[in-house]
Amino acid sequence: MNKEKVIELVKVNKWYGEFHVLKDIDLSVYQGEKIIVCGPSGSGKSTLIRCINRLEEHQDGVVKVRDITLDHHTQSIEKIRSEVGMVFQQFNLFPHLSILDNCTLAPSWVRKMPKKDAEELAMQYLTKVKIDDQASKFPGQLSGGQQQRAAIARALCMEPKIMLFDEPTSALDPEMIKEVLDVMTDLAKGGMTMIVVSHEMAFAKEVADRVIFMDEGSIVEEKPTAQFFSNPENERTKLFLSQIL
């Protein structure tokens, strides 16, 4: 693969007090790659992707995003965050703002985009996730699936190069999971670099280039998608797959 390396993690370690959450994590992600991270709960998946945009601080090792090394400088953190979009399990829309304002806030105040341009951009992405007709409503008036799609649009409005998804469908009712996954599949086909923490294995098979299996804070298995499902090597991976498929 000759593509540009956009995320690089070298020997990343993190502790919560005594608890060792991330153990010597090495990971490289290339431009346009889609990576699925799975594993049992408490295995450090969410912590891993939250370290990429510094929502969690790692204590040891190197995190590099597009040539910016994460350190304590606020500027480097904010620069990385404006290039890396994130979608959360609990949507985390801003309940006091309309859907449109949720989407325009960051472009107009972080990117300093004129209000009119920001609104056009927001409507473009809201159309893409098929909720442009809900733009003037407040988050509380939308269904879970609509809220999550709005959250995706909000992240896209910053025009990020990389998107992180932290269990985007885990808080949704079953009939709403598909509408969110469809949006994510579209996004993947459009060439976005994506890291998705998810247990939606059908989705993984369809879009992922690589699948990473984590357990107890380390990457246990990392393989191209087809091999991961057809030929898992580690015992824990086999056990996990037998339970989930």
């Binding site: 945009n53 510094r54 929502l55 606020t74 904010e78 620069k79 965050r81 404006s82 890396v84 979009g85 994130m86 959360f88 609990q90 985390n92 829309l93 801003f94 309940p95 006091h96 806030l105 960051a106 105040w109 972080v110 959250a151 909000r154 992240a155 910053m158």
Partner: peptide, 25 residues
């Protein structure tokens, strides 16, 4: 905490986050 996470993940600094997201709520 999710409100802070969301604001930070959009690249907002401390003051923008507090003025637009946290304090109004």
């Amino acid at each position: 905490k999710g409100q802070y996470d969301a604001a930070k993940s959009l690249g907002m600094g401390y003051w923008k986050m507090n003025i637009f997201i946290i304090l109004p709520q």
